[in-house]
Computed example of a mutant assay.
Amino acid sequence: MSKRTWKELEQGVENGCSPWACRRSEARRCRTTSLPVTEAMQRSLAALFAARCRPQRWESVEASTNMWEILRVFTHWLAALPEPPTDVDAIHAVWNAWKLGRTTRVGGYHQVTRMGALLIDDPQVVGEVAEAMGKRIPKPRAQETSYTNAEYDQIKTPARRVFRSASIRIEHNARHLEQWRAGVFTEGGRDWLIGEVLDGLARTGHVPCRPRGRGELQAVARYARALGGGSKQHTWQRLYLTRLEATSLGVLLMAEFGLNLSVIHTLPVPRASAGSGPDGHPTYRLELVKRKRGSGHHHETRNVTDLGSGSPGRLITQALTATRFAREGVEALSPGTNCLIIWRTGTPSRGAGVGAWFRLGIGENSASDWGQLAGVAVGSPFRAAGGR
């Protein structure tokens, strides 16, 4: 992470706001509301957070983002108390209540231990409460069980349906774009206009637009008519995966290769082995980073071959095809990103991605929302796959 980025992050935190919600502007104004605690508490927490937002403390965006979410949970919990503490030096009166109400589950365990590790750096935290925050807490066992075969089918079926539909849509428009670039269509006709839009969409990430007011954009009328409308379904979704579709691809990778969410989230683009493919069966090299393993065992490689429909390698071919326009767009904006799962958002912002429109990987929120969006009552689909 660049020094400039770290500096901007600290500035955002000092304003009591999410570290990734600050606009890149001279004033660096924050786009989120302040934490629901007193001004004194905000300043103390901001100082603690900013002190850790350095390469020597937090080496990744993910680490600081996860801590920010815990901080938000903690401050909302404080705000709901009958008499919330006004600053960090008064947290000792409620710390045990926070601890006892959180440590029965793995998620609560992380909230308590990480919040304690953050607060203990404050010089106001001394004595017994500092000892309590620094005391080791036994980690509870995860309460989730492996999927049954029926649950596995319940997950894979909608994931396959959603991703297949997206793949067909993107491939159909990709063929139309190829024909336009080859000069197949008569200039000025509907098919020609669609091809012109697709060419711009592939190069820039969006269709030709004009200002609509309040900072919103609207597709140029003649292009919207050719496309059949100006909605996201008619415009940028022609070449890019949505959040739901990208998560569905992640679910299929989990089911096919037994990968967990953290591995899928950062999965590099698989490369076809040198010399593979003359017989029509390309072999891909998967480079997996498994951070939960011990030192020296974080990296693993697998070779998978596309032997046709239903083979593990065919899923990799489909993933590469469905994400190729997004990967090309991200490569132009940030060379060397090398992430397989990239999707486009309809709400431009500065987030965990590249530019205003593209997002990388699959976050915890996407995983949690997937079941509801896909119409499956499973919560997050990325659980142990022992019931396969």
Rank of each mutant, 00 (worst) to 15 (best):
K7Q: 02
L9Y: 06
V13S: 05
G16P: 03
A21H: 01
S25F: 03
R31T: 14
P36G: 09
A47G: 04
A51H: 12
S60A: 07
S60V: 01
S60H: 04
S60R: 00
M67S: 14
M67A: 15
W68N: 03
I70G: 00
P82L: 05
T86C: 11
I91S: 07
A93L: 15
W95H: 03
A97R: 09
L100W: 03
R102N: 15
T103M: 03
T104C: 10
R105C: 10
R105Y: 13
P123N: 06
V125W: 00
V126H: 14
G127M: 06
E128K: 14
E144N: 08
E144L: 13
S146V: 03
A150G: 02
A150D: 11
P158W: 08
R160T: 10
R161F: 09
S167Q: 15
I170A: 09
I170P: 12
H176C: 11
E178N: 06
A182V: 05
A182Y: 02
G183Y: 13
H206C: 01
P208T: 10
P211S: 13
R212Q: 05
G213Y: 07
R214K: 15
E216G: 02
V220R: 06
A221T: 15
R222C: 08
K232P: 00
Q233W: 01
H234S: 03
T235A: 02
R238E: 12
L239H: 05
T242I: 12
T247L: 10
S248T: 04
G250L: 04
A255C: 11
P270M: 13
A272C: 09
A272E: 14
G280C: 06
Y284S: 02
S295F: 11
T301D: 14
V304H: 05
V304A: 08
D306T: 10
G308C: 04
S311Y: 09
A326L: 11
A326G: 05
V330F: 02
V330R: 00
L333K: 07
P335F: 12
T337V: 15
I341S: 01
S349W: 05
R350C: 04
R350W: 08
G351A: 11
W357Q: 10
D369F: 06
G371R: 08
A374G: 04
A384L: 05
